[in-house]
């Protein structure tokens, strides 16, 4: 084996070690969720649960966790549907319809992306109060529909659809609505999938806005609800780890199943940015 091959093997090994280190905290979270409360505090710790128990997950069901889970599913799914519908129309307009204000509108969308979301919490919260959105699911869904980044992303995707396809459809008497619905949407499925997944994950993982909007326990989403578990006097780490697993598992599964679209979405934003 020559020197450069040896280097490659060593670097590959380094990467494997880095990957294991990256995943280890997740292993620890999952394995601790199967430990009894006293074991979770024990020193020296058990590197794997010697007597695995489902008690933490059963205790989790005694809280409102099942309701929180359904709330999260409902809010994230509704947000995703609304964003895909409204964003795709806007992206079609900005990518393929030639009108004078289009460039200007697009540059406003892009420019707004540098404004930190948290800096707008106050005025957005004031509007939510004005519109009676406090403590409603609509209050979680409606503000998320304003998604300039998703419009930007989908526009980059739609730009790549050849203009000739649209022209020939127009020649055949297809209306603008028909072009959008019958041609643009089917041809930009990967882009639609990317923004749908991004939006779902973003909505599922949101915390701050949900904290401002939702006031009572039954209406909480999973992240909000699980965060309240630590308020208890004696912190039950096994239970909290179980809550953390339940909160993160659905999106991790979605991510692994749709990794291709994540990668496409991320790179389209970067390469043609």
């Amino acid at each position: 084996m020559n020197k450069s091959n040896l280097i490659v093997v060593m670097l590959k090994l380094l990467l494997v070690i880095a990957a294991v280190l990256f995943l280890f905290p997740f292993y620890w979270m999952i394995s601790s969720s199967f430990k009894e409360m006293s074991i979770a505090f024990q020193i020296p710790p058990q590197f794997y649960p010697h007597h695995p128990t489902l008690n933490n997950y059963i205790k989790l069901l005694d809280t409102n966790a099942a309701k929180w889970f359904l709330n999260s599913v409902f809010v994230s799914a509704s947000t995703t549907l609304a964003v895909v519908f409204i964003t795709s129309m806007a992206a079609y307009s900005l990518a393929k319809i030639n009108f004078r204000a289009g460039k200007f509108i697009f540059s406003i969308f892009v420019g707004s992306m540098t404004i930190p979301g948290a800096a707008l919490l106050i005025p957005q919260f004031k509007i939510a109060i004005e519109l009676n959105l406090i403590n409603t699911y609509l209050g979680l869904i409606v503000p998320a529909i304003a998604a300039p980044y998703m419009i930007f992303l989908l526009r980059q995707f739609m730009k790549t659809v050849p203009q000739e396809v649209l022209e020939s459809a127009k020649m055949d008497g297809c209306s603008e609505m028909g072009i959008y619905y019958r041609i643009m949407l089917p041809l930009s499925t990967p882009g639609l999938a990317a923004i749908a997944i991004f939006t779902f994950v973003q909505s599922w993982n949101d915390y701050i806005w949900q904290l401002l909007i939702i006031k009572n326990t039954e209406m909480m989403t999973l992240p909000l609800g699980v965060a309240t578990l630590i308020d208890a006097e004696a912190v039950d780490w096994g239970l909290i780890m179980a809550g953390s697993v339940v909160t993160s598992l659905p999106v991790v599964i979605i991510f692994i199943s749709f990794q291709k679209y994540f990668v496409q979405g991320l790179t389209v934003g970067a390469v043609k940015g």
């Binding site: 409204i86 964003t87 129309m89 806007a90 079609y92 307009s93 900005l94 319809i97 030639n98 009108f99 004078r100 204000a101 289009g102 509108i105 406003i108 969308f109 707004s112 404004i115 800096a119 707008l120 106050i122 005025p123 957005q124 004031k126 509007i127 409606v142 503000p143 529909i145 304003a146 300039p148 419009i151 603008e176 959008y180």
Partner: peptide, 27 residues
């Protein structure tokens, strides 16, 4: 002639104005 451009972008623009543009000016 340009109406379709506006019509398709209008819903997004409405939400954007309400939860982005107005908040920026208000802040």
């Amino acid at each position: 002639k340009e109406r379709y451009g506006f019509l398709f972008v209008a819903p997004a623009l409405l939400f954007f104005a309400l939860f982005y543009l107005y908040p920026i000016l208000d802040a």
